[in-house]
């Protein structure tokens, strides 16, 4: 049995989730239901739960505030939210799981299965660290991303990533330190997360950090050279937008 605490400021959301869990996950025991951060904090220290179903928006506070105030080692977190673009982006960066309200039955089962499978990896605390560091106010010095790999998660500063190269359902990530990480996600996944972070998909197989672009050489699509000396082909259809981005950058 896994002990779970449901945290949401709206009663009907708690009710619905509880109903769904009862029906679809009988091996999860709901030990507490909280509507505020303060209540949640005391329940967490009291119950030492395995799972938190955590609403992002909790009145004036956020679920992130709660996480920053508790000892989150050994706790799995699944966020629940109805519609919060920016919070979702941060959650995606940290690779933490989330459910959209109204929660879909199959989505919930899927999330729980995943949680059970990776629980023994014990990397959730690292993800929460990433999340909390990213949402820290005025944090411009670093932006970390949790990269799902075959072995678990690797935390990387986005500024250390030179480029992504697609390899079917995997992506090879080339870092400034000359290291290479193979992620278990498609290049499209990273493109979506990093689209507004100075990363640009110059080619079907290449997502590059524009900070590392040294030169652009004209051609049909042309190609770019990066700081590490690699030459990356530019797709004809991406040329125009790339040039626009490179110009606006300088």
């Amino acid at each position: 049995m896994l002990k779970a605490i449901l945290i949401d400021d709206e009663q009907h959301c708690i009710n619905r989730l509880e109903g769904l869990l009862r029906k679809n996950a009988p091996d999860i025991e709901i030990v507490a239901r909280c509507k505020t951060i303060e209540g949640a904090k005391s329940e967490i220290s009291l119950q030492s739960p395995d799972i938190l179903f955590l609403d992002v928006q909790l009145g004036r506070d956020t679920g992130f505030d709660l996480l920053s105030q508790i000892n989150y080692t050994d706790i799995e977190v699944i966020f629940t939210t109805s519609y919060d673009k920016y919070a979702l982006k941060a959650i995606k960066f940290s690779a933490l799981d989330f459910l959209l309200k109204p929660i879909d039955r199959s989505d919930l089962s899927h999330a729980i299965q995943k949680l059970k499978r990776y629980r023994n990896l014990r990397d959730t605390s690292k993800k929460i660290e990433v999340l909390l560091s990213n949402i820290k106010e005025n944090n411009t010095s670093s932006e970390r991303i949790a990269i799902p790999t075959l072995e678990g998660y690797t935390m990387v500063d986005t500024r250390d990533i030179i480029r992504f190269q697609s390899d079917a359902n995997y992506s090879h990530i080339h870092l400034k330190s000359n290291n290479k990480i193979t992620a278990s996600k498609t290049i499209k996944y990273f493109e979506e997360i990093l689209a507004h972070r100075n990363f640009f998909r110059v080619h079907k197989s290449h997502l590059v950090n524009l900070s590392y672009v040294e030169t652009y050489v004209k051609g049909k699509g042309g190609y770019i050279t990066l700081n590490d000396g690699t030459k990356i082909e530019v797709a004809v259809r991406r040329k125009e937008e790339l040039i626009k981005k490179l110009i606006s950058k300088t």
Partner: peptide, 16 residues
């Protein structure tokens, strides 16, 4: 009802 509602929510979200 639940099935319908969840799908409706998903569609609405996607459209938005």
């Amino acid at each position: 009802a639940d099935d319908y509602l969840v799908k409706f929510a998903k569609l609405t979200r996607s459209i938005l």
